[in-house]
Each structure stands twice: as C-alpha cells, then as structure tokens.
C-alpha cells in the first residue's frame, strides 16, 4: 500500500521526495531541487541541480548571478520530466512570471504542490491550472475568512482617483520587487495611465527581465532626479521598505500607498503609516483557497505556510481530511 508520505514528506531543508531524491523549494542548499517560483524564500542559491521554468531560472540568475547552482534544467509548462521513478510536471500557478505548481506522480499517486498561487487574472503570467490529484498541498498565506481581495481594477481606480484629487503631491506605491511591481505597472497601463512611471533602482533589473519575457511595461523612469518638483503628480513604485526609508524624502509630500493583501486589515495599514492601502495580492484569498479545494476535492489536503488552522477547520467542515505541514522558512510579510 503506497502512502502519500512515502512520496513527499517534510524535512528541515524543505519538502522532500525520497523516491526521486529531490526537494521542492528547499530553504537550505541541497543536491537536487525543484523550484516553484523566483521569490527569495522559495528560490535560494547554492543548490546542486535545479529544475524550474525558464522564467524562474532567469529570475534566479538575475538575483544571484549566473552560477547560482551547479546545473539548471528548464521545464516548459506541462512537460513531464522524469526523476528516477518519479515524474515531475510544472503547470502554471498564476502567482508571478514563471511561477508553477509542481505535479509529482509515482506509481499511480499524484500530489500537487501548489507553491504560491492565485486564481485571478494577472496580466504578467498565465493563469492557475487545476490538476486533479490525491493530495493537494496548498499555501495558506491568506487563510482566514477576513481576506477577501477586491477587484484589482477597482483598487487601481482608487489610486488614480487619489492622484487626480491630490495633484500637488506624489504617490509612492510600495510593491514587492518581483511580480507585484510589474503587475501594478501593467494594471496602470490597462487603466489608461500612459505617462512615465518612476521606479526605484531595486526594480530596474526585474522590470527589464519582465520586458524580455514579453510583458510590456511602457515608459519607465528612474526615481533618482534631484529636483523635488519633478515628482509632483507622478506615480512612483518602490519596494515596501523604501517607502519609509530616507530614500523617500526626495518626493513632495507623498501619499504613501502599499499594494498587498495585508492591507485588507486597517490596523496593518496604520502600523506601517500607509495612507492609501491597495488590496492587491499575488496570493489566493480565502474564497480562492476554499473554492480551489472544493474544485479539486483532493483525497487529502496538506497545508503549508500561512494560517493553517483556519483552512484545516474549513476543510474538515466540508468533509476533506486536512492537516498542517510544519514547514519552516517561508516569509509571510512583504510578498503578500
């Protein structure tokens, strides 16, 4: 009798597959790794062999330099890759450019490791593809019923309305450098904002990488001008930490915005001194998590990082056996 934990089990380094001898998103250097996406807490440098999508390998190369692992293998979405007795397929997760779920098959057993995912449209990456499975391993970053992300178009409309309402100020939008920043820029373009968007230096290389992979970001300018009045009426995108940093003093009386799922909770916005919270997330919200589980109806639900207990409770109430997987090392803050 094959048990799911024989195929995948938690280890201190990360989620381990004994029959294929590889880890998925290990948090420490290992011999063989499968990487779901390029966020730093999932994609670390120093592994032996790395299997990921070409986009994710590109992102890792950009962040860590070309020699971030001893060998790299790119897998296209949907392409089955054998590892010993195990077959790995990467399918779109809809999280950021290159993000994938890892579908692991062995002796008739299928486990899907979602990585981070969302179910809404994202103009910078292909949408999440549901894959029928015996075990679904889901993230639960926003695994509480309070997290119901609104329509991202409406959030961008709020930003643009504020820009019109306060023409004498600048709007400084905190957005995670990989994925969120480029999605915000695309959404602004779709909403008709065709002026130059000013960007913090930390975003420049990833912006260029997105452009190389066919995401048109429109005119971008570095936010480095020394003349303060230059930024009046402008939108500036920067990593969240920079919006409260001394760096931000170059902008005239900025309206500080922050694009994140955490901004759903007013106290979070207040703590960070955010004047205009934009609830835009690259993670599944409560409704997306529960509807995905409902759609897949897996034999078992394993829950990784985030608020495991609430989602486990929900699954039990809906007749799906669920358990938290104690995996450490995934951040929950800035990439929301």
């Amino acid at each position: 009798m094959i048990r799911p934990q024989d195929l995948l089990c938690p280890k201190p380094q990360g989620l381990y597959c004994p029959p294929g001898d590889f880890y998925i998103d290990p948090t420490r250097p290992v011999a063989r790794a499968v990487i779901t996406h390029g966020h730093a807490d999932h994609a670390r440098a120093g592994h032996g062999a790395v299997l990921a999508t070409a986009e994710t390998l590109d992102i890792m190369g950009e962040r860590y330099g070309a020699g971030f692992a001893q060998s790299m293998q790119a897998a296209a979405y949907g392409e089955a890759v054998p590892r010993d007795d195990v077959e790995i397929t990467l399918v779109p997760a809809g999280h950021v450019l290159g993000s994938a779920q890892a579908v692991v098959r062995w002796k008739g057993l299928t486990i899907v490791v979602s990585g981070d995912y969302k179910r809404r449209r994202d103009p910078t990456c292909p949408p999440f593809e549901p894959v029928p499975c015996d075990v679904f391993i889901t993230e639960a970053t926003f695994g509480l019923p309070v997290f119901r992300h609104p329509d991202d178009k409406a959030e961008i409309a709020r930003l643009l309305r504020s820009v019109a309402q306060f023409p004498e100020r600048s709007h400084l939008v905190g957005a995670y450098a990989l994925g969120k920043a480029q999605r915000i820029i695309r959404l602004l373009r779709e909403a008709g904002w065709d002026k130059a968007i000013y960007v913090h230096g930390a975003l420049e290389r990833l912006n260029a990488l997105y452009e190389k992979h066919g995401v048109d970001l429109g005119p971008l300018e570095p936010a480095t001008s020394t003349k303060k009045h230059d930024f009046t009426g402008q939108i500036i995108i920067a990593p969240p930490s920079a919006t409260q940093d001394r760096w931000s003093r170059r902008f005239p009386d900025p309206v500080t915005a922050f694009a994140s799922g955490w901004m759903q909770v007013r106290a979070r916005a207040r703590q960070r001194g955010v004047e205009l919270p934009l609830v835009i997330s690259d993670h599944a919200d409560w409704d997306e998590l529960t509807s995905t589980v409902d759609e897949l109806r897996p034999g078992e639900l394993w829950i990784t990082h985030g608020r495991e207990e609430a989602l486990a409770r929900w699954a039990e109430l809906h007749g799906i056996p669920a358990r938290p997987l104690a995996l450490v090392g995934y951040e929950e803050e800035d990439d929301g």
Binding site: L144, E309, L317
Partner: peptide, 15 residues
C-alpha cells in the same frame, strides 16, 4: 458562519 472561524478572524483583526 462557523463561530470558530469567526473567532479566529476577530482575534486577528481586533475590531
């Protein structure tokens, strides 16, 4: 809704 899920939510948000 499930009172337990509500309680966890209230505990998290605080208001």
């Amino acid at each position: 809704m499930d009172p337990q899920l509500f309680w966890w939510s209230y505990d998290y948000v605080g208001d």
